[in-house]
Amino acid sequence: MAHRLVRPLRGTMTRLLQQLQLKPSSALNPANSSRNYISEMRKEAFEGNILRLLRNEIQYELDHSPPSQPIPEFHLFTVDERPGEQWIRLKKKFGETEEIKVDVTMFDVSIPKKEPGGVVTEDDVQLRVTMIVNICKGEGVDVLEFVCSAWPDTIEIRKVYARGQKQITSPPYMGPEFKELDDKLQDSLYDYLEIRGINDELAAFLHSYMKNKDKTEFIRWMGTVKSFVEKKQ
């Protein structure tokens, strides 16, 4: 009789031990369960605050300074907005053989207009975008590139150099600083860009375009962060 009672008891103890091993420690320790609950509540409150701030900021931007639809063309240039990126590309044909590409960064330099020590506001800062002008005359011919600064109302050439069309492992010789060139040569190179539409009018357009893109990308960025925080694991 005793022998029959021992066998079922052993089976019951084995099952009980297996169940205890499968249960999380919080089931055995109420304090752990309480701490986990409080931690989860804090996490939800923290994320809820982030989401509230992001929603408020997005709504504020849309109500007070909404971006406009990007302009797809400027004169003969087509404009590739490059959503989510920090640059845009303009392209056009010139003459029978030339293809011109202009890669333009978002604002990368700001210079105060007032003397040092004064209070500088947004209106007192002069912004710059960088342009890389790529002029190609067909397959097998070197590309002529200009590195330029576009200020609010003027174009400034910084470098001029030629390179092959294929990517190379080492950078090409980029020549001297543009300001070190002969004055007449500088003027001629400015005229070279001018007749191709790389001029002060383009600089003004790019500044207007990039101000709008800056707003658009800021709102897009906040929306991306909001979506990430909202996503449940």
Rank of each mutant, 00 (worst) to 15 (best):
M1P: 12
A2M: 12
H3D: 13
V6E: 09
V6Y: 07
V6W: 05
P8L: 06
R10F: 03
M13V: 15
L17V: 10
Q18R: 13
Q18H: 13
Q18K: 14
L20H: 04
L20M: 08
S26T: 11
A27I: 09
A27T: 14
N29R: 11
P30T: 00
S33T: 15
S33W: 08
S34G: 09
R35D: 10
N36I: 12
Y37I: 12
I38C: 07
S39V: 07
K43Q: 14
E44H: 10
E47W: 06
E47F: 11
G48C: 04
I50F: 11
I50G: 04
L51P: 01
L51R: 03
R55E: 15
N56F: 07
E57D: 08
Q59E: 12
L62G: 03
D63M: 07
H64V: 15
Q69C: 08
I71F: 05
P72D: 10
P72I: 09
L76T: 15
F77Q: 02
F77S: 01
F77N: 02
V79L: 01
D80N: 11
E81L: 10
G84L: 01
G84M: 01
W87D: 12
I88F: 06
L90G: 03
K92V: 06
T97M: 10
S110D: 13
I111P: 02
P112I: 01
E115N: 11
G118Y: 14
V119Y: 06
V120D: 06
E122T: 09
Q126C: 11
L127C: 03
C136W: 13
G138T: 03
G138M: 00
E139P: 02
V141Y: 06
E145T: 03
V147D: 07
C148Q: 03
S149H: 10
W151L: 15
I157D: 00
A162H: 01
Q165K: 05
Q167C: 10
Q167Y: 14
Q167T: 15
I168Y: 07
T169L: 13
T169E: 14
P171H: 06
P171A: 04
P172R: 06
Y173F: 15
K179L: 09
K184S: 15
Q186E: 05
Q186A: 03
S188V: 10
Y190R: 05
E194Q: 13
E194G: 06
G197H: 02
D200T: 05
A204V: 13
H207G: 02
H207D: 00
K211M: 13
F218H: 12
I219K: 05
R220Q: 08
M222S: 02
T224M: 10
V225I: 07
S227V: 01
F228S: 09
E230D: 04
